[in-house]
Design a protein around this nucleic acid. Structure first.
Lengths: 229, 229
DNA sequence: CATAGTTTCATACAACTGTTTGAAATGCAA
DNA sequence: TTGCATTTCAAACAGTTGTATGAAACTATG
């Protein structure tokens, strides 16, 4: 095996290109040109283009999920087994947002690739993606423990909206910048995370609990959310 | 010109296919097969594949914007020139949500096509899409009139989050259904609109004003939103 | 009917796609 | 060094893509 220089060069070139231009208009020839390797190397090392994409996705997917779960566990440990809803949501959206936005965008290809993958539904990824449901279920369970009086339906909608705001902010950051003429600062990642989490918490608790700062947890339970809607 | 049966057959077949399968893996041959016309008809009637896509997008874009603006104007007229924030947001997200979700999903290809177009950034569409900014600015202006004490930044973030929740709900309705095991009812379009609007209003007003029903407007102004975040 | 203009059609084209091939180069153990 | 396995390479492959062509079919006007 020697050094898998070629392998890793292909992987990182592919990730970069897919992240920047999407799956549709990136060819194997683009990838090998960027990686400065021979065209046949892709099939030699990965078997096929689809397997290359799958490997890329699986690797990053596991890493993101691990990062999220680490934050979740840390939060639950700090809360004596029951994390507050604020920190749960922060663990959910933080890793991806930090990876994609902010001034240190150079190493963000990984996160941007994952966003692409979550949008453009290319066959090799579609087959793998069902596992994400199980991953999200862990967060749903943590949220349930954190907000025992919150109805199941509200819980899932809150989770859904949190991800929606986080992902769309990454995906369409350009539009928001243009629309607000630069007013909305997309380099302030922490501010964005705070914003997404705050709104999500309001969605979950019906606006009664407001978490203004990450340091100030909302009351972990007792918030009735049967707000009729 | 006779009857542009062929033209319209191509347009609607293309829209349907693009909406269902995305731009990446739909070929002209797929389209003409679905439309039951000759392959050369596309280039004869539209000039090129890109021009076909562009025409599709422009047509639908204008229609959606018109629908939104009609609702907005109706709301402003009803409010004596200043609509409440609730109905503004409803005009913004309602048309697309109603078009994409719900039980009458058969004629939803138009709206689903627009969602695709807003995600998969294919060249002919990218060139046109800048106009949408101007369209959204009208909603930003209406929101500003409705919430004069709301800071500009909060306003844009609120607008952004509203669109984020609406679009992601359409885009990833399948995941939400699976995750919630059917608990979240995606056929209840009105309920979804209420939900998105309510959360957006909370995001804009800091959770003080809660709009539970479309009939009950929130106070049009006087809500300070400098909530530090 | 005849004719001019429009529209359809089968077919071909050139460009590009992912993949394969077999030989050349390389690395490493004996 | 020799010998063997791994890795790289240029070239070619078969399939698909969007587009172009020129003849045929159609439509409507005179």
């Amino acid at each position: 095996m020697a050094s898998d220089h070629t392998r890793t060069a292909i992987l990182s070139a592919a990730e970069q290109l897919y992240a920047d231009r999407g799956f549709a208009d990136v060819t194997l020839r683009d990838i090998v040109a960027a990686a400065d390797v021979n065209l046949a190397a892709v099939n030699y090392h990965f078997g096929s283009k689809d397997e290359l994409i799958a490997e890329l996705f699986v690797t990053r997917s596991l890493a993101t999920n691990r990062e999220r779960l680490n934050e979740l566990k840390a939060a639950e440990a700090a809360g004596g087994g029951r994390a507050n809803i604020d920190s749960i949501l922060r663990a959910l959206v933080g890793p991806t947002l930090r990876g994609c936005l902010g001034p240190d965008r150079e190493r963000s290809a990984a996160a941007r690739f994952m966003i692409r993958a979550s949008i453009e539904s290319v066959p090799p990824i579609r087959r793998i993606k069902n596992r994400e449901i199980d991953h999200l279920r862990k967060f749903a369970a943590a949220m349930r423990r954190s907000l025992p009086d919150c109805s199941e339906v509200e819980l899932y909608w809150g989770l859904h909206f949190a991800l929606a705001m986080a992902h769309q902010t990454i995906r369409d950051s350009e539009r928001l910048t243009k629309l607000s003429e630069g007013l909305c600062d997309l380099n302030d990642v922490q501010g964005i995370i705070d914003r997404v989490v705050t709104v999500s918490v309001m969605a979950l608790t019906g606006g009664e609990a407001q978490s203004k700062s990450p340091a100030r947890p909302v009351a972990p339970y007792g918030r009735l959310t049967r707000q009729d809607l």
